[in-house]
Design a protein around this nucleic acid. Structure first.
Ligand code: ZN
Ligand code: ZN
Ligand code: ZN
Ligand code: ZN
Lengths: 130, 130
DNA sequence: TTAAAATTTGTTATAATATAACACTATGTA
DNA sequence: TACATAGTGTTATATTATAACAAATTTTAA
């Protein structure tokens, strides 16, 4: 019986919470919300988050220290992430743009160096806030 | 006598330190290194950092919670920042690439929304580490 | 020049984010 | 089975960042 790509109990609880959320969740907000399910301490949350990030189920929004579920068809297990972030309402959307992904994935700097991963964060006002 | 775009004493001390550094500096590393100059507490460091970021003299590397001096001719007071980050030696370089800046500054998402600022971080191995 | 306004500083305390370390349990593999 | 790998629970602590308040300095403009 080989291992399916299944999540462990804590990983599933935390993924479900993030996946249902319409906004990025912070680690301690997550902790507070899963305490009734038996997850009581920060390391339990951070370990699950680490694993979910590694496997591309969620992403960390670095400028906010918060986490969102992956919604992209082109991020390719987190090698190529792009987000739009509203500076007014804090809403975050993952950008799925094959052309953008291709452009950045093939980018090479002035020394000709190519990179194996990127993370891009756009800031502005979302449709609702404009 | 109008205000030149000069830095205050603490701002200058902290900028000099970051500017001389060949690697990103963290806030508490900075604090430790400027204590002999009379800057004794975290708020003094964070206030100077905030101001230096606002004025585009330095940038925060979000994935590392660390700060580097601006070295770009095309970041336009931090509206368009791009960095390469070595996953082995932790080296960070600001990318100055007019074409990249132009491409991303004019990017609009599927709803036609444009953004006023972006931050891009590339990850890989630097020349030395390859 | 002088008084109000804005900025910067110094200081103490505390909030928010993240990891170390260790003992133990569950699951996958041979 | 037995070994390895991954996940869990727990306590303590490290790291990053801000709140709040008083004082000093610099800028602006009457
Ligand atoms: Zn994704
Ligand atoms: Zn908004
Ligand atoms: Zn710059
Ligand atoms: Zn390197």
């Amino acid at each position: 019986m080989h291992k399916e790509n299944n999540l462990s109990k804590n990983q599933q609880i935390i993924f479900d919470l993030i996946n249902k959320s319409s906004e990025p969740l912070k680690a301690y907000t997550i902790l507070f919300n899963v305490q009734k399910k038996g997850i009581k301490a920060p390391p339990q949350v951070y370990r699950a988050l680490d694993k979910l990030v590694q496997t591309g189920k969620i992403h960390k929004i670095e400028s906010k220290n918060a986490f969102v579920a992956c919604r992209s068809s082109s991020c390719e297990i987190s090698k190529a992430t792009a987000f739009s972030i509203c500076e007014s309402c804090e809403m975050v959307d993952e950008i799925s743009d094959a052309k953008l992904t291709k452009y950045l994935s093939s980018f090479s700097d002035k020394k000709g160096t190519k990179y194996k991963r990127f993370n891009l964060e756009f800031f502005g006002l979302c449709k609702k806030c404009k």
